[in-house]
């Protein structure tokens, strides 16, 4: 059985420099490695042409590069692509690439499955199979052909990013650092259901955008839709955001899936206006994409338009997210690798 070596892909510059020191390599090797790992397409040490052969041999003795190609891709009629990656034995994750004119967005996963059990989410139905490493998160960007076109990265795929905070924070560093992928913090958004302590760490340490899954401003309704409400209620989430000075560069948005006759009434508009009073933010309405066995229905188009208008009239900037990739189950809330995980388990 071949020896499994630690991967270099997913290490920060500080970690790469430390590794170079541990292996008695010149300190600048850390910077060279970061360049090859995050700014080029090489997938082996042989391609690192400005690194000496001797150094490459030492590195290859102890480490693997750790870049993994997707194992499958599906393409939607609207141009959206859903990439499938392996993430450890018998585990899979998905990432969605969404082109829209000059804007190219990659929706990445942070966990295999999800623990949060939201009533409306397909990923939640597969349960939780594990956290992704920093390398596995970034590999979703690094290994797809559209990598160089990417303008935006959103952490809205499988899993709850703030339940895997350390790996996600490291990935944000590498994604936005000059030595890394050098994507502007204004083009990166992390979505959470509102794990307050971890969200606070994110707001303190990162300048990336934040999106919070809100879905109803009423506590009792929210805890039926999202069990997290029992532990971290919306009021704590909003109060935490209020504590931070959300400058003009960081955007905070609240995601709101529209469920017919559940959360699409005028009562909800009024309560949203009250709850979000003086929070510099916007609301992003999302059409519901029904999942098997769900008791929920999507609001009709007229109700969505009325709701959006009513919120805008209240002074809350409200947009409606376009549904993309629905025909390949790449749209919001539809990512799942449950069947693949099951199949691997049975093999």
């Amino acid at each position: 059985m071949p020896e499994i070596k630690e991967y270099l892909f997913g290490k920060t510059l500080a970690e790469l420099t430390e590794i170079a020191g541990t292996l008695d390599l010149p300190k600048y090797t850390g910077g060279q490695l970061a360049y090859w790992l995050y700014k080029t397409d090489i997938d082996s040490f042989d391609g690192m042409t400005n690194v000496s052969k001797k150094t490459r041999n030492i590195l290859a003795e102890h480490y693997d590069v750790g870049v993994q190609a997707p194992v499958n891709v599906q393409e939607s009629t609207d141009g959206t692509k859903k990439y499938l990656f392996r993430a450890g034995s018998g585990k899979f994750i998905e990432a969605a690439y969404i082109p829209d004119g000059k804007r190219h967005t990659l929706c990445v996963s942070s966990q295999v499955g999800c623990k949060m059990g939201c009533l409306f989410c397909m990923t939640g139905k597969q349960g939780f199979q594990g956290h992704l490493t920093t390398g596995e998160i970034l590999n979703q960007l690094r290994s797809i052909p559209e990598r160089k076109e990417m303008t935006n990265v959103v952490y809205m795929g499988m899993g709850e990013p703030f339940d895997n905070l350390d790996a996600v924070m490291k990935s944000l560093e590498i994604l936005t650092a000059e030595y890394g992928f050098a994507i502007s913090v204004r083009k990166v958004t992390v979505s959470t259901i509102g794990i307050v302590p971890a969200m606070r760490v994110f707001l303190e340490k990162s300048k990336c955008n934040l999106a919070v899954s809100l879905h109803t401003p009423f506590d009792e309704e929210r805890r039926r839709l999202m069990p997290i409400q029992n532990v971290y209620p919306l009021k704590d989430v909003v109060e935490t955001i209020r504590e931070f000075d959300i400058g003009k560069y960081r955007r905070v948005s609240f995601e709101y899936i529209m469920f017919k006759e559940v959360n699409d009434t005028r009562r909800h508009v009024n309560e949203l206006a009250r709850v979000l009073n003086k929070v510099k933010s916007r609301i992003n309405l999302i059409r519901f994409h029904p999942i098997p066995g769900t008791p929920l229905l999507g609001s009709d188009e007229a109700a969505i338009a009325d709701f959006q208008q009513a919120l805008n009239d209240k002074g809350i900037v409200t947009t409606l997210r376009a549904s993309r990739g629905q025909d390949i189950d790449a749209a919001c809330g539809l990512l799942s690798t449950k069947e693949l995980v099951k199949a691997q388990t049975l093999e």
Partner: peptide, 28 residues
């Protein structure tokens, strides 16, 4: 566990329990 909660919730809904009557706590 998340698996238990989502599977049981699906069964309850299939058996006609309104989701308003299902309150879940998850490990995380």
């Amino acid at each position: 566990s998340a698996e238990m909660v989502v599977e049981v919730r699906d069964i309850l809904i299939e058996k006609g329990i309104p989701f308003d009557n299902i309150i879940s706590e998850i490990y995380f």
